[in-house]
Design a protein around this nucleic acid. Structure first.
Lengths: 324, 324
DNA sequence: TTTTGTCATACGTAATACGTATAACAGATC
DNA sequence: GATCTGTTATACGTATTACGTATGACAAAA
């Protein structure tokens, strides 16, 4: 029945009829295991809630399909053959693997219920991920979500804090986390026109050093690194920020007020660039894009509530982050 | 169906009927794999030598039993779901394991045919192992056996010499061999009464040094070591053999003739001890028992002809060596 | 000798799973 | 737009499977 003759691209395996008389192999094996462990056919029948003739037939069916004698048996006793011993040991492993397989697959359809706790940066948590969140809640009536907006990484031990997952911007360094890359977010240098006081827009990175600066402390504080988009050249600038925050929105607001130059995700600035309220400085120079990841603690088993959220966010990532 | 609730000594798994409507799970999974690889239900049907409705029904059966949607399909196309992808990857491994399992089990019933080449010491090869050899030949009509009696270890490379296995007496030192312990053969010190010329029987090992000696060169040559059976004390005796052989039977014959003192397996001497033709010297002192092993070259696969011989000799070892 | 427990097998019956035939749908071609 | 080709789903009739009940043979214990 497993007589594969593998040809390039075309396997010649013929489907075995479901009613081939070989029975349901897994169930036959499970029956054999029970016979061995119970010590007799009739004891196994009792424990399995069926009858001795059924067990007798199943054992014969199995032996016939394998062409082996697994148990020597008389009207009085039975004893494992050597083939039977070998079969028993091997079957135990295989059937355990099969049970796990089915359990995992069926667990996949387990309906999530309970509370999902997610940490999200404000930049994504205020608007862009609300869509997927709403769809998640819509699909799972039994779920509640704690949506925790944080722009720092104050919470380190997700497990202790009962956090299921987080959206992290920037490199993921905690080895205890699984990181699912979702996007790369481009960043640009911006300032309000008023900060330039009528002077020309700086074109080179070197010109930026003399300007007042804003720091987005999670990603840069006293120094910024820029790369020329055409030449690939790097430039490192020492800055003394007049304003430091961990909120991308606060940074944007301070920039709009003309407090200083800031580096932030392009998508947050786009609307104000179009209105002329912000200008992109040194447009040929960019800071490195920031990776966005869905992270969650490494574990052997993940509850349905988390798996479904992960699946959904992954599926929708192109739509969420596609235009960044 | 795998809802075990394990109680000490009693498992509560109920037998699932073979016709539970879940079909033959392994075959259903194999069908699913073929669908995915063929790219459509009708292509899978063609490759499996069955019909599209059969494939359609099997896929549904599988989905129903797992409670999952594995494939999204329309009248025109089909696409794996995420559950389907997971199922596919995992099922491939499991089914490969199952195939190996069945293949190994069925290989066990392969009927041996050809020539088995065995090296045996004369002491065992002349009589005691002839019984099992005869039974082996009886059970396997297609087999011939080359039964090579050697008391030395002249043949080292069993594989090159086409030797399947050997019975070895003494320590097995070749790391390329698998050694299956069969027995421990006790040894005693014997001589003919005539050698003592009317003097008292030596009781202490030290008294043996002055006597003329016979050497069984495979096991001792210029020196013998004896252990006191009660005190555990060791005694080492330098000897100058008047006669040296690699045949236990020749040693016995020389001893019977009064040529000298010899150390040999007790079972070979028993008959003559009872007749008084030989006497056990220093009866409280014995040489170390000799291990008897069935050895064969290490390999990943053993032909049926060897496996059956090994199984038989192992099974009968207690009867063959039990009274040594 | 009787009782109890073991495994194997016959019988009647309900359920399964097959191929053939058909319907609905979608894309490509003319 | 009409026709052809390929897709999947489902109804129908039929052969086969696998079940429990009943029975027989055998062995050990009382």
């Amino acid at each position: 029945m497993m007589d594969d003759i593998q040809e390039p691209g075309r396997a010649l395996r013929t489907a075995m009829p479901l009613q081939a008389g070989t029975g349901e192999r897994i169930e036959l094996m499970l029956t054999f295991l029970k016979i061995v462990e119970a010590g007799s056919l009739s004891a196994a029948a009792q424990q399995l809630g069926t009858t001795q003739p059924t067990i007798s037939r199943r054992l014969q069916m199995l032996e016939r399909s394998l062409g082996l004698r697994l148990l020597q048996r008389t009207t009085h006793t039975m004893r494992l053959t050597q083939d039977g011993e070998r079969c028993y040991e091997r079957a135990k492993e295989l059937l355990a693997g099969w049970a796990r397989f089915e359990s995992e697959l069926k667990g996949a359809r387990e309906e999530p219920e309970g509370v999902l706790r997610v940490i999200v940066p404000h930049a994504f948590g205020q608007e862009r991920l609300i869509g997927p969140l709403a769809r998640y809640l819509q699909q799972h009536a039994g779920m509640s979500v704690e949506w925790l907006l944080h722009d720092d990484r104050a919470i380190q031990d997700y497990i202790a804090a009962g956090i299921d997952c987080a959206i992290q911007v920037g490199e993921v360094t905690d080895p205890g986390l699984v990181a699912l890359p979702l996007a790369q977010v481009p960043r640009i240098v911006v300032a309000a026109p008023s900060l330039l006081d009528g002077q020309a827009i700086p074109q080179d990175a070197a010109e930026l050093a003399a300007l007042p600066w804003l720091a987005l402390r999670t990603f840069y504080r006293n120094e910024v690194q820029l790369t020329h988009s055409e030449t690939g050249r790097h430039k490192r600038i020492q800055i003394r920020p007049r304003f430091s925050t961990d909120s991308l929105y606060a940074l944007r607001s301070a920039a709009l007020q003309g407090v200083g130059v800031g580096i932030g995700s392009r998508w947050v600035m786009t609307e104000y660039l179009e209105q002329g309220q912000l200008i992109q400085l040194a447009p040929k120079w960019q800071a490195a894009p920031l990776p966005v990841s869905l992270v969650y603690p490494y574990a052997r088993f993940y509850p349905a509530r988390l798996r479904r959220f992960i699946d959904l966010v992954r599926a929708e990532a192109p739509a969420i982050f596609g235009e960044t």
